[in-house]
Amino acid sequence: MIGTAKSGHPGGSLSAVEIVVELFFDYMKIDPQNPKWKDRDRFILSKGHAAPVLYCAMAEAGYPDTPMDQLNTLRKLGSVYQGHPDVRFIHSLEASTGSLGGGVSLAIGMGLAARLNGSPSRTYVMLGDGESQEGQVWEGAMAAAFHKMDNIVAITDYNRIQLDGFVKDIMEVAPLADKWRAFGWHTLEIDGHDLVAIKKALEEAEATKGKPTAIVAHTIKGKGVSFMENNPKFHGTAPTPAEMVLALQELR
């Protein structure tokens, strides 16, 4: 779909596939046929540029406003599949995102509402490691721990690459897990491509009371496509038609 759009962010979508799949097809309590069910779990894609992975998951899950047969209209005029998630076009999305750093604050608001409503709803927010350079992330991290938000989970897709290059060369965020721990979060580090590890981490988060959980998921940018893996070029560049053929062969 990114190839057809001729622009987009393939690398950061591929690194997040297993996490999104585990959440949407196993762990989260959601009802795609009834997307606004009040006690549903919620997913916020704070790293909004990975919209394609979210769109694919939602289409596969069968939400009424994410048609599978229109995925290739990504980024085209009139498409519901906007460049970054937009609730005006897809009502089933939990939040409009795209400007980095905002998701943790949104999750706190949703978590507070669930608490006030006595709802078991849990909120999952996925961040990028580069995104963690944004100050608002840490304002939210401080507030979530202070308010003992044990119904929210922040998952970092730690793929080590951002637009301009390797995170360590642009603005190092390590030691990332130590930072979340220091802010008062129960913090886990896992292999973000291991479905069993992801599920175990989500279970541990749910069992943790009195504090929010941060899952630092170590991933590979462009995972599954040899020439995209760990290649900063594919943070924000679409594959050419030839590259697309190769990529799809490798992913099969």
Binding site: E94, S105, L106, I108, G111, A143
Partner: peptide, 28 residues
């Protein structure tokens, strides 16, 4: 007190939290 959220000196976070509350049907 249960419906008052102290966010500390962090206005960006405060507005984001307000947005999250509104997404979930509250009037923040």
């Amino acid at each position: 007190p249960d419906r008052f959220v102290s966010v500390g000196i962090a206005e960006a976070d405060m507005v984001g939290i307000g947005a999250g509350l509104a997404y979930a049907g509250k009037i923040p």
